[in-house]
Amino acid sequence: MRSIALVAQAVFKESVRDRVPYSMVAFAVLIIAASYLISQLTAGQDMKILKDLGLAAIAVFGLLIAVFIGINLVSKEVERRSVFAVLAKPLSRSQFILGKYFGLALTLVVNLSVMTLAFYAVLLYVDLTTDALLKAAWPAPALDPRLVIAVVLIVAELMLVTAIALFFSTFSSPLLSALLTLGVWVAGHFNADLRNFEAVLDVRPVALLARAVYYLLPNLAPFNIRAEVVHGVPVPASQVALTLAYAAVYITILLLGAIAVFRRRDFK
């Protein structure tokens, strides 16, 4: 356990030294602030657009962090040959993979927390400067605590994406890993269509195959409750809990897969 924590700490420190997450956070903060200016064009819909844009910025920049750091976690060590030095220490390959994963997960949580705080600060400013008559038309309060639930699900989705990136990075190049991860992310958002394939296709084997792919690929659509939260529509707690449980199970599968590949990998 201690070895995993040490590797995770090293990954987190390296990401702090690496300025990429900082620039992304700065950019996200800038986008959120810019959204205030954009909202002047929206015919009174500034709060809705601010929330949509803020949550989307958090999701997009989080995704970039997850993919572009995730794909380098293992491959960079292998390329630099530093993996030999690390594995010569009393550290198993599975501990190495888990430490890498939790280190990046910690980086994500810290980055997204900063973005969320910045997001709430902009919402607070708009809330304080908006006329009460206009506020009455908002479907949900500016500082709606349910926004945090949307962010929690974004974090869960990104942790799943990180696990996908880590899995691919155990056996392929960074570029290929990035393409594969983004491909799975896109497919994960189209996944719901596969479930209803039999409604549009009469060929039963193909429909069954589509159904199998639906269950095999990660289903990322349920992680997106941004529209419900922005419109003040209640999201059942059971749905959130099941989505988080799904993420935990799927992440475990991917980590076990990554460990299995990495344990059998020959470094020459």
Binding site: I38, I49, L53, V186
Partner: peptide
């Protein structure tokens, strides 16, 4: 909606601004 990849509401906002403008 398919092209928006889960960012449907954000794309809707962009088209809303475009409609208003």
């Amino acid at each position: 909606k398919r092209m928006a990849l889960g960012f449907d509401t954000l794309v809707a906002d962009l088209y809303w601004i475009r409609a208003v403008v």
